[in-house]
Design a protein around this nucleic acid. Structure first.
Lengths: 356, 356
DNA sequence: GTTAATTTTGTGCACGTCCACGGAATAAAT
DNA sequence: ATTTATTCCGTGGACGTGCACAAAATTAAC
């Protein structure tokens, strides 16, 4: 509410010209130690803040942001992330922002590698990274660091890097939530739980799934309820195979009343069960994709944990813009998204996206 | 991404001066029919959009927004709404916005009446209304309509009014969610449910509570599960009285394993039960207030339904600013907040507020 | 047909920041 | 001491909109 201090006022107080203040604010160099000190003192005293509006007008530079994420499919996880990104660009349509996507196959490290390699050649001002392969990502980040190009992580964070900002979920905590939901959705006292991962070679979002499962196990260990968890894998690539897998599993484990799928493919299991009219088994999955949304409505999925992918995309862009234009970085680098629990009864509310 | 058309360009195309275009855009009058028509044709053809940044700079007017809501207590529902409002004002700190609160006692219609009566005298440019008493609110809205002052609703909507925008929850749907949660949090097949309202004369947020209860009953009717719901009231004003009420109720209804409280005062029941070491009863309540938050952590409350009050406050301010400054109104007037389900395991995520 | 009143239109400045340009001051080189 | 290079600094225009004021055009009044 307090009146904004202007650059001109700062200059006057420090006994220099506005141009000098500007140079210091954008550390453009070519300014003497004495002036720097004088201005910085005034800056600290007054708590100067950029006026985003006026800087936006006079800025005519075009910023190129490259978005390096797994291929975005409409209605699936990365597609929703993209939605948030586009929304942010619209919000900042007064600024010239050029978005280029560098998609890669999240199941193919070679695709990731070749995609990441070309990024610097494309001359980005900033990069948004949806990391799958830690090693490849680390290499990219080092190159970006050397070039002084700011970057942000969405969905997951790779250790040892220096992002401007990250938007992700605490997957370990999500695993604990799954644990709780498994209990809740298992009626009766003798029910057993099951967890399905995917039978797949390579490390498809391995880190996320691993963290989820360790959180889940942690939860049950602490509870000491004596209940058992059956783990199993299903093959994703071959539908017939996975159908057989599941039916065999249920036959072997008749006490299982609730199955958690630690990725976004709960709808596959749900559809298989529905096609066999198996209705007494509750399914918990991740991500509010179109398919999972449909299954929630139909009742074949009991609950979905959602980590606001659109918000992640939106904020990543927003933070990078602030870093680029106003040279402002958030104090907190790591932001964790809420883990929304979505059931049939509150599903409708999550269709309208509130990001700004 | 398409290049913005400027007023100057519009003027040139229409063969008039920029001033004339400006007059038409702000319908300031004093412009001939022929010019109006010419400009409006160009306007429609080009799809002109205000550049918020440049208009923000040249605008030096101070806007006074009056916020007429129940007394905001830190950590309680309206306190969190206020948080969102303040956040919005900070976000728009480049614009001169003056916020004045007109608090009233939500349990006292006379307090509301006198508060609402003074609002027009305070010369607002816009008003945010947190409605409790429908009749009083309708009177206020009519006066605002006549004066041409835009207003927004938060938390609830009063019929027959013409707000610029509303941010609220579908309370009926929230009632259905409660129904589902009651089932989930009642282990065993013979458990009964209970719903507590507050024993209070007058209509404290009556509409909201009523809608919730009807949604809840609807849900159980549709389910035809044959389960019974016990309804009861507890007195809020007298702690000793409410303690007796509850213990008597539980004694009379030993099969009740889950109690829903249809307002934000679940923590009161939770604390009473905890003080008697009653641990096998799950409590479901509304609103993530400080107290409910604490009870979730302690485990004395099982779940809370939260309707993002901070988001409501934030967006109400944002929409009004857009209406005032840029003469832009959202197409959709009524916005419904997501109903987040919060349990101990995902509580931590809802402490950081993501509104923008 | 001249003057006055009124409506309509154009012009120009301000807002705060960015940044290019050129001038001033200082240091280095001869 | 003069020239040249280098560092440092101030000035002023541009961005697009809002708005006040003056100019022009139209209408009304006599």
């Amino acid at each position: 509410m307090a009146k904004q201090v202007t650059i001109k006022e700062i200059a006057q107080m420090a006994g220099v010209s506005p141009g000098t203040v500007d140079r210091i604010l954008h550390n453009r160099g070519n300014v003497s130690a004495s002036s720097t000190e004088a201005v910085e003192r005034v800056l600290a005293a007054t708590g100067y803040k950029y006026n985003i509006h006026t800087s936006a007008i006079s800025l005519k530079k075009t910023y190129r942001i490259i978005i390096a994420i797994p291929t975005a499919v409409k209605g699936e996880y990365w597609g929703i992330v993209q939605l948030g990104i586009e929304r942010a660009i619209e919000e900042y349509s007064d600024i010239n922002i050029q978005c280029e996507y560098a998609f890669y196959n999240q199941f193919d490290i070679y695709s990731c590698r070749s995609s990441f390699r070309s990024i610097l050649d494309r001359n980005p001002n900033a990069v948004i990274i949806g990391a799958t392969f830690a090693s490849e990502t680390a290499i990219l980040c080092e190159k970006l660091d050397n070039a002084g190009i700011p970057y942000a992580f969405v969905d997951s964070v790779v250790e040892g890097t220096k992002p401007v900002v990250t938007y992700s979920s605490d997957q370990n905590a999500c695993g604990r939530i799954v644990g709780r939901l498994l209990e809740l959705f298992s009626p009766g006292y003798d029910a057993e739980f099951a967890v399905f991962g995917s039978r797949r070679t390579g490390n498809e979002r391995a880190t996320n799934s691993m963290s989820r499962i360790s959180g889940l196990l942690e939860y049950f260990n602490e509870r000491k309820s004596g209940r058992t968890i059956k783990e199993s894998k299903i093959s994703v690539l071959d539908p017939e195979e996975s159908e057989k897998d599941i039916l065999r599993f249920l036959n072997d484990n008749p006490k299982v009343k609730c199955i958690a799928i630690l990725n976004s493919r709960g709808y596959i299991i749900a559809d298989i069960l529905a096609s066999h009219s198996i209705e007494d088994i509750n399914i918990v999955s991740f991500d509010l994709t179109t398919n999972n949304s449909r299954c929630l409505e139909e009742g074949s999925i009991a609950a979905v944990i959602c980590q606001r992918p659109e918000l992640q995309g939106f904020h990543a862009v927003k933070s990078l813009i602030h870093a680029l234009l106003y040279n402002v970085r958030d104090k907190d680098i790591h932001h964790f998204m809420p883990a929304d629990i979505i059931i049939r009864e509150n599903l409708m509310f999550y269709q309208e996206i509130f990001i700004n």
